[in-house]
Design a protein around this nucleic acid. Sequence first.
DNA 1: TTTAAATATGTCAGTATTGACATACAGCCC
DNA 2: GGGCTGTATGTCAATACTGACATATTTAAA
Lengths: 114, 114
Amino acid sequence: MRVNAMKSAKLERLQAAGWKIGNAEDFLQLSDEEAQLVALRLSLISAVKKSRIKRKLSQIDLAQRMKSSQSRIAKIEAGDPSVSLDLIVRALIASGAKTRDIQAAFTSNENSKR
Amino acid sequence: MRVNAMKSAKLERLQAAGWKIGNAEDFLQLSDEEAQLVALRLSLISAVKKSRIKRKLSQIDLAQRMKSSQSRIAKIEAGDPSVSLDLIVRALIASGAKTRDIQAAFTSNENSKR
DNA sequence: TTTAAATATGTCAGTATTGACATACAGCCC
DNA sequence: GGGCTGTATGTCAATACTGACATATTTAAA
Protein backbone atom coordinates (compact mmCIF):
# COMPACT_ATOMS: atom_id res chain seq x y z
CA MET A 1 0.00 0.00 0.00
CA ARG A 2 2.76 2.40 0.81
CA VAL A 3 0.54 4.73 2.72
CA ASN A 4 3.20 7.37 2.84
CA ALA A 5 3.96 7.36 -0.82
CA MET A 6 0.36 7.02 -1.80
CA LYS A 7 -0.71 10.61 -1.63
CA SER A 8 2.08 11.91 -3.78
CA ALA A 9 1.73 9.08 -6.23
CA LYS A 10 -1.93 9.86 -6.54
CA LEU A 11 -1.15 13.51 -7.01
CA GLU A 12 1.31 12.74 -9.75
CA ARG A 13 -1.16 10.60 -11.57
CA LEU A 14 -3.82 13.23 -11.38
CA GLN A 15 -1.52 15.92 -12.61
CA ALA A 16 -0.27 13.69 -15.37
CA ALA A 17 -3.89 13.21 -16.41
CA GLY A 18 -4.24 16.93 -16.81
CA TRP A 19 -5.93 17.76 -13.56
CA LYS A 20 -6.66 21.22 -12.42
CA ILE A 21 -5.94 21.00 -8.74
CA GLY A 22 -8.48 23.69 -8.01
CA ASN A 23 -11.17 21.08 -7.66
CA ALA A 24 -11.25 20.71 -3.91
CA GLU A 25 -14.34 18.54 -4.03
CA ASP A 26 -12.63 15.60 -5.54
CA PHE A 27 -9.56 16.14 -3.46
CA LEU A 28 -11.36 16.13 -0.18
CA GLN A 29 -13.22 13.09 -1.34
CA LEU A 30 -9.98 11.34 -2.04
CA SER A 31 -8.35 12.08 1.24
CA ASP A 32 -11.55 11.14 2.99
CA GLU A 33 -11.52 7.70 1.46
CA GLU A 34 -7.86 7.43 2.13
CA ALA A 35 -8.51 8.27 5.76
CA GLN A 36 -11.14 5.56 5.97
CA LEU A 37 -8.73 3.01 4.61
CA VAL A 38 -5.95 4.06 6.95
CA ALA A 39 -8.27 3.94 9.93
CA LEU A 40 -9.36 0.47 8.91
CA ARG A 41 -5.77 -0.68 8.64
CA LEU A 42 -4.98 0.70 12.04
CA SER A 43 -7.82 -1.04 13.78
CA LEU A 44 -7.03 -4.34 12.10
CA ILE A 45 -3.39 -3.98 13.06
CA SER A 46 -4.24 -3.37 16.65
CA ALA A 47 -6.55 -6.38 16.55
CA VAL A 48 -3.69 -8.54 15.33
CA LYS A 49 -1.41 -7.53 18.14
CA LYS A 50 -4.19 -7.94 20.66
CA SER A 51 -5.14 -11.37 19.38
CA ARG A 52 -1.56 -12.56 19.23
CA ILE A 53 -0.79 -11.44 22.76
CA LYS A 54 -4.05 -12.83 24.07
CA ARG A 55 -3.09 -16.27 22.82
CA LYS A 56 0.45 -15.91 24.08
CA LEU A 57 2.02 -16.29 20.68
CA SER A 58 5.40 -14.80 19.89
CA GLN A 59 5.89 -13.13 16.53
CA ILE A 60 7.83 -16.20 15.51
CA ASP A 61 4.94 -18.46 16.46
CA LEU A 62 2.50 -16.44 14.43
CA ALA A 63 4.90 -16.26 11.51
CA GLN A 64 5.14 -20.04 11.48
CA ARG A 65 1.41 -20.45 11.61
CA MET A 66 0.98 -18.40 8.48
CA LYS A 67 4.23 -19.43 6.77
CA SER A 68 5.58 -15.93 6.94
CA SER A 69 8.57 -14.52 8.84
CA GLN A 70 9.10 -12.82 12.17
CA SER A 71 10.23 -9.65 10.48
CA ARG A 72 7.02 -9.49 8.46
CA ILE A 73 4.94 -9.82 11.62
CA ALA A 74 6.94 -7.04 13.21
CA LYS A 75 6.30 -4.88 10.17
CA ILE A 76 2.61 -5.67 10.27
CA GLU A 77 2.35 -4.57 13.87
CA ALA A 78 4.48 -1.51 13.23
CA GLY A 79 2.11 -0.40 10.49
CA ASP A 80 4.84 -0.56 7.89
CA PRO A 81 3.52 0.77 4.59
CA SER A 82 4.98 -2.17 2.70
CA VAL A 83 2.35 -4.42 4.28
CA SER A 84 -0.87 -5.15 2.45
CA LEU A 85 -4.35 -5.41 3.90
CA ASP A 86 -4.32 -8.99 2.73
CA LEU A 87 -1.40 -9.84 4.95
CA ILE A 88 -2.88 -8.04 7.93
CA VAL A 89 -6.12 -9.95 7.64
CA ARG A 90 -4.28 -13.22 7.18
CA ALA A 91 -2.33 -12.53 10.33
CA LEU A 92 -5.53 -11.77 12.15
CA ILE A 93 -7.07 -15.04 11.05
CA ALA A 94 -3.92 -17.03 11.73
CA SER A 95 -3.66 -15.55 15.19
CA GLY A 96 -6.92 -17.30 15.97
CA ALA A 97 -9.20 -14.31 15.89
CA LYS A 98 -12.79 -15.32 15.41
CA THR A 99 -15.09 -13.75 12.87
CA ARG A 100 -16.55 -11.78 15.71
CA ASP A 101 -13.15 -10.28 16.55
CA ILE A 102 -12.52 -9.29 12.98
CA GLN A 103 -15.91 -7.71 12.80
CA ALA A 104 -15.18 -5.85 16.02
CA ALA A 105 -12.04 -4.41 14.49
CA PHE A 106 -14.20 -2.88 11.81
CA THR A 107 -16.77 -1.67 14.25
CA SER A 108 -14.19 0.26 16.22
CA ASN A 109 -13.54 2.09 13.00
CA GLU A 110 -16.27 4.50 13.96
CA ASN A 111 -15.61 7.63 12.01
CA SER A 112 -18.21 7.16 9.39
CA LYS A 113 -19.02 10.57 7.99
CA ARG A 114 -22.59 11.60 8.64
CA MET B 1 -3.85 -13.28 -3.91
CA ARG B 2 -4.40 -15.79 -6.63
CA VAL B 3 -6.83 -17.89 -4.71
CA ASN B 4 -6.68 -20.67 -7.22
CA ALA B 5 -2.94 -20.92 -7.28
CA MET B 6 -2.62 -20.44 -3.57
CA LYS B 7 -3.23 -23.94 -2.40
CA SER B 8 -0.70 -25.53 -4.66
CA ALA B 9 1.84 -22.80 -4.02
CA LYS B 10 1.44 -23.35 -0.33
CA LEU B 11 1.78 -27.05 -0.80
CA GLU B 12 4.96 -26.60 -2.76
CA ARG B 13 6.45 -24.39 -0.12
CA LEU B 14 5.63 -26.83 2.62
CA GLN B 15 7.07 -29.74 0.72
CA ALA B 16 10.16 -27.74 -0.12
CA ALA B 17 10.54 -27.05 3.58
CA GLY B 18 10.66 -30.75 4.18
CA TRP B 19 7.13 -31.31 5.34
CA LYS B 20 5.68 -34.65 6.04
CA ILE B 21 2.21 -34.31 4.63
CA GLY B 22 0.89 -36.84 7.06
CA ASN B 23 0.25 -34.06 9.51
CA ALA B 24 -3.40 -33.49 8.84
CA GLU B 25 -3.76 -31.19 11.80
CA ASP B 26 -1.76 -28.39 10.28
CA PHE B 27 -3.27 -29.00 6.92
CA LEU B 28 -6.80 -28.72 8.07
CA GLN B 29 -5.82 -25.65 10.00
CA LEU B 30 -4.43 -24.11 6.86
CA SER B 31 -7.39 -24.80 4.67
CA ASP B 32 -9.65 -23.60 7.42
CA GLU B 33 -7.93 -20.24 7.51
CA GLU B 34 -7.91 -20.16 3.78
CA ALA B 35 -11.62 -20.77 3.77
CA GLN B 36 -12.17 -17.92 6.18
CA LEU B 37 -10.24 -15.57 3.94
CA VAL B 38 -12.05 -16.67 0.83
CA ALA B 39 -15.41 -16.27 2.53
CA LEU B 40 -14.41 -12.80 3.62
CA ARG B 41 -13.41 -11.87 0.10
CA LEU B 42 -16.68 -13.14 -1.25
CA SER B 43 -18.80 -11.15 1.12
CA LEU B 44 -16.80 -7.99 0.50
CA ILE B 45 -17.09 -8.51 -3.24
CA SER B 46 -20.82 -8.89 -3.04
CA ALA B 47 -20.95 -5.77 -0.91
CA VAL B 48 -19.09 -3.85 -3.61
CA LYS B 49 -21.50 -4.85 -6.30
CA LYS B 50 -24.46 -4.16 -4.08
CA SER B 51 -23.19 -0.73 -3.08
CA ARG B 52 -22.30 0.23 -6.62
CA ILE B 53 -25.70 -0.76 -7.97
CA LYS B 54 -27.50 0.88 -5.10
CA ARG B 55 -25.88 4.19 -5.99
CA LYS B 56 -26.49 3.67 -9.68
CA LEU B 57 -22.84 3.78 -10.60
CA SER B 58 -21.51 2.05 -13.69
CA GLN B 59 -18.22 0.20 -13.44
CA ILE B 60 -16.70 3.09 -15.35
CA ASP B 61 -18.05 5.57 -12.80
CA LEU B 62 -16.61 3.63 -9.91
CA ALA B 63 -13.32 3.15 -11.73
CA GLN B 64 -13.03 6.91 -12.16
CA ARG B 65 -13.80 7.56 -8.52
CA MET B 66 -10.93 5.38 -7.43
CA LYS B 67 -8.62 6.12 -10.34
CA SER B 68 -8.73 2.58 -11.53
CA SER B 69 -10.11 1.06 -14.72
CA GLN B 70 -13.38 -0.52 -15.77
CA SER B 71 -11.69 -3.82 -16.40
CA ARG B 72 -10.31 -3.86 -12.85
CA ILE B 73 -13.76 -3.26 -11.43
CA ALA B 74 -15.13 -6.08 -13.55
CA LYS B 75 -12.40 -8.35 -12.24
CA ILE B 76 -13.13 -7.32 -8.69
CA GLU B 77 -16.78 -8.23 -9.04
CA ALA B 78 -15.96 -11.44 -10.86
CA GLY B 79 -13.78 -12.52 -7.97
CA ASP B 80 -10.71 -12.66 -10.16
CA PRO B 81 -7.79 -14.07 -8.17
CA SER B 82 -5.50 -11.31 -9.40
CA VAL B 83 -7.40 -8.83 -7.24
CA SER B 84 -6.14 -7.99 -3.76
CA LEU B 85 -8.19 -7.47 -0.63
CA ASP B 86 -6.82 -3.94 -0.61
CA LEU B 87 -8.42 -3.18 -3.94
CA ILE B 88 -11.71 -4.75 -2.97
CA VAL B 89 -11.93 -2.65 0.17
CA ARG B 90 -10.94 0.49 -1.73
CA ALA B 91 -13.70 -0.17 -4.21
CA LEU B 92 -16.13 -0.66 -1.37
CA ILE B 93 -15.14 2.64 0.19
CA ALA B 94 -15.10 4.47 -3.13
CA SER B 95 -18.54 3.17 -3.96
CA GLY B 96 -19.81 5.13 -1.01
CA ALA B 97 -20.32 2.27 1.39
CA LYS B 98 -20.42 3.44 4.96
CA THR B 99 -18.46 1.89 7.75
CA ARG B 100 -21.63 0.16 8.77
CA ASP B 101 -21.92 -1.51 5.36
CA ILE B 102 -18.37 -2.72 5.48
CA GLN B 103 -18.93 -4.09 8.91
CA ALA B 104 -22.05 -5.84 7.69
CA ALA B 105 -20.05 -7.54 4.99
CA PHE B 106 -17.90 -9.04 7.69
CA THR B 107 -20.85 -9.97 9.81
CA SER B 108 -22.41 -11.94 7.00
CA ASN B 109 -19.23 -13.99 7.04
CA GLU B 110 -20.84 -16.24 9.61
CA ASN B 111 -19.02 -19.49 9.40
CA SER B 112 -16.82 -19.05 12.40
CA LYS B 113 -15.88 -22.47 13.68
CA ARG B 114 -17.16 -23.08 17.14
C1' DT C 1 -32.10 -6.43 -36.39
C1' DT C 2 -29.11 -2.26 -35.44
C1' DT C 3 -27.09 0.64 -32.15
C1' DA C 4 -25.26 1.86 -27.89
C1' DA C 5 -24.09 1.30 -23.12
C1' DA C 6 -22.46 -1.74 -19.77
C1' DT C 7 -19.84 -5.51 -18.52
C1' DA C 8 -16.36 -9.34 -19.27
C1' DT C 9 -11.84 -11.30 -20.57
C1' DG C 10 -6.96 -11.43 -21.90
C1' DT C 11 -2.40 -9.35 -21.98
C1' DC C 12 1.54 -6.89 -20.30
C1' DA C 13 5.08 -3.53 -18.61
C1' DG C 14 5.51 -1.03 -14.45
C1' DT C 15 5.18 -1.15 -9.57
C1' DA C 16 4.18 -3.05 -4.96
C1' DT C 17 4.50 -6.75 -1.75
C1' DT C 18 6.64 -10.99 -0.29
C1' DG C 19 9.62 -14.23 2.69
C1' DA C 20 14.13 -14.67 3.94
C1' DC C 21 18.12 -13.12 5.83
C1' DA C 22 21.31 -10.27 8.63
C1' DT C 23 21.68 -7.58 12.27
C1' DA C 24 20.39 -4.45 15.96
C1' DC C 25 17.97 -3.47 20.10
C1' DA C 26 15.37 -4.36 24.66
C1' DG C 27 14.26 -6.81 28.72
C1' DC C 28 15.28 -10.43 31.95
C1' DC C 29 17.72 -13.84 34.61
C1' DC C 30 22.21 -15.63 36.28
C1' DG D 1 29.40 -8.58 32.57
C1' DG D 2 27.25 -12.75 29.37
C1' DG D 3 23.37 -15.57 27.59
C1' DC D 4 18.61 -15.80 26.17
C1' DT D 5 14.07 -14.64 24.20
C1' DG D 6 11.44 -11.49 21.85
C1' DT D 7 10.96 -7.59 18.83
C1' DA D 8 12.58 -3.99 15.34
C1' DT D 9 14.77 -2.43 11.00
C1' DG D 10 16.95 -2.65 6.51
C1' DT D 11 17.79 -5.04 2.18
C1' DC D 12 16.72 -7.66 -1.91
C1' DA D 13 15.49 -11.11 -5.52
C1' DA D 14 11.26 -13.38 -6.54
C1' DT D 15 6.55 -13.00 -7.08
C1' DA D 16 1.97 -10.69 -7.09
C1' DC D 17 -0.83 -6.90 -8.30
C1' DT D 18 -1.82 -2.77 -11.01
C1' DG D 19 -3.90 0.36 -14.61
C1' DA D 20 -4.27 0.60 -19.27
C1' DC D 21 -5.45 -1.14 -23.45
C1' DA D 22 -7.77 -4.07 -26.96
C1' DT D 23 -11.45 -6.72 -27.79
C1' DA D 24 -15.45 -9.63 -26.93
C1' DT D 25 -19.88 -10.38 -24.95
C1' DT D 26 -24.21 -9.15 -22.83
C1' DT D 27 -28.17 -6.15 -22.18
C1' DA D 28 -31.60 -2.97 -23.35
C1' DA D 29 -34.04 0.05 -26.07
C1' DA D 30 -35.65 1.45 -30.67
